[in-house]
Write a protein that binds this DNA or RNA. Structure first.
Lengths: 210, 210
DNA sequence: AACTTGACATACGGATCGTATGTCAGTATC
DNA sequence: GATACTGACATACGATCCGTATGTCAAGTT
C-alpha cells in the first residue's frame, strides 16, 4: 500500500481520458470545454493541466487510447483469416467498419490530424499503420505481394480504407454503400497482389459488425 | 457605372478570401485571428461577418476556391495523357503532387474536413472527387476498368492519393519518398484495371512539378 | 512528529468570437 | 436635383475559453 498516490493519480488520468473521449466525440475538439469536461469527471482544470500539459495533450492521450484499441481489434480479426493475404484484406475491411463509429471518425480521423498533425508522426506512432505495414512486409517476403515500399503500401491502403469510411458514414444510408466500398477496397487492394484478380469473388464474407 | 456598390463588394470579398487563405495556411484555422486577418485585408470584422456569416463561412469560401483550382489543374494535366487509363493515373499523381503544397495540406486536407465535415458534402461538392469519378466512369464504359461502383472507386483513389501526400510532406525528405509513393499508387490503382500489372513499368514518367 | 513533496483547486489575465448598434456612401423616388 | 432609404461596413460590448500563477492539503519521508 506504499503507493496510494500513484493509484489515485492513475484513476484520475483514466477519468479525464474517458471524459475527454466523450466530450471530443460529442462536441468536437474545439467546441469541447475543459471546464465542463473536467467537471464531468469530478475534477477541475488543475488536474488536467497537471496530467496532460494542455488541451492538445489530452487529445493526444485520447487518440492514443482509441488507436490502440483499433489496432488490437484489427489484429484480432485478422488472426482469424485463412492466409496472410486474406488477413490483410480482413484488417482493411475491419478498419473501414471501425471507422463508422462516430467516436473514431470525429476524434481520430477529423480532429486528430488537424490538431496533432500527420498520424504517422503521432506519439502513438499510429498503431493501425504499423499493423498494416507488418502485414504487407510478411506478404512481400512470401512473394504474394509485389515488391513495393511497405510503408507506402500501408499508407495508401489505410488511407483508402479510412477515407472510404468517412464517405460511408456521411452518406444517407450507410448500410447500403458499405458493401460497395468493401468490394471496391478488395479490388483495389488486389493491385498489390502478384496474382491478378485475387480478391474479386470474396464479397460473401461474413462480416462481424462493430 | 450603375453598380459601383456591387463592384467594391466583390473586391472586398476577394480581399478577405485572399487574406483568409494566407492566414489559414500559415497559422491554421483555429489560431488564425479574425481581427488580424481582416486588418491585413484593410477591413474589419464587420465586413467579414456581413459577407460570410462566420469564421466557418470564410473557410468554406477559401476551400472552395482552392478546390476549384486543384480540379482544373488536374484536368489540365490529365488532358495531356495518352489514353484514358493513363489520364486517371496522371490525375491521381497530380493530386499527390499538389497536396505537397502546405497551403493545400493545412486548409483542404486537415482543417477543411475537421471544421466543415466530410469533403463529399461540401458546398463545392469537392471538384477533385468529381473529376476522378468521371474518369472512372469513362474507363468502365470502355471496359478498361472493372465494373465497380464509380463513386467508391473515386473515393478510394483520391483517399489513397491525398493520404500519401500527407505522408510525403510530413516525412524528413519529401523528395525521396515521393517516387515511392507514386509508384505504389500506380501499382495499387492497377487493381482496378482489367489488364493485370498495367501500370507497373511507368515510373520513368516525366513528372511536371507543381 | 515535523517536514517535504506534489497532485490538484482556485483566481486571474489575455485573447477571441459573435452580436448589437451606429454610420455613411450609394441608390431610388418624386 | 433634393430627400428618403437601403445596406455594406465599422465600432462597442458581452460571453466564453484557454493557460498560468498561486494556494492548499493529503501522502510519503526522515
Amino acid at each position: 500500500m506504499a503507493n496510494k498516490r500513484a493509484e489515485t493519480m492513475e484513476q484520475n488520468r483514466a477519468k479525464l481520458i474517458a471524459a475527454g473521449r466523450k466530450a471530443f466525440a460529442e462536441k468536437g475538439y474545439s467546441a469541447a470545454s475543459m471546464d465542463d469536461l473536467t467537471a464531468d469527471a469530478g475534477l477541475t482544470r488543475g488536474a488536467l493541466y497537471h496530467n496532460f500539459g494542455d488541451k492538445r495533450g489530452l487529445l493526444a492521450a485520447v487518440v492514443d487510447q482509441i488507436d490502440s484499441e483499433m489496432a488490437s481489434r484489427a489484429q484480432e480479426i485478422g488472426a482469424r483469416a485463412g492466409d496472410d493475404w486474406q488477413r490483410l484484406l480482413a484488417e482493411g475491411v475491419a478498419y473501414i467498419e471501425m471507422a463508422l463509429d462516430p467516436e473514431v471518425q470525429r476524434i481520430v480521423l477529423l480532429d486528430g490530424p488537424a490538431v496533432l498533425g500527420d498520424p504517422s508522426q503521432w506519439p502513438s506512432q499510429n498503431s493501425c499503420l504499423q499493423v498494416t505495414k507488418r502485414a504487407v512486409e510478411r506478404l512481400i517476403a512470401q512473394g504474394v505481394v509485389k515488391p513495393v515500399d511497405a510503408e507506402a503500401a500501408a499508407r495508401l491502403l489505410s488511407g483508402a480504407a479510412l477515407n472510404a469510411a468517412l464517405w460511408i458514414a456521411a452518406s444517407d444510408n450507410p448500410l447500403d454503400v458499405l458493401p460497395k466500398a468493401v468490394e471496391a477496397f478488395r479490388i483495389l487492394a488486389s493491385g498489390f497482389s502478384v496474382k491478378a484478380g485475387d480478391a474479386a469473388g470474396q464479397t460473401a464474407d461474413p462480416l462481424p459488425l462493430a
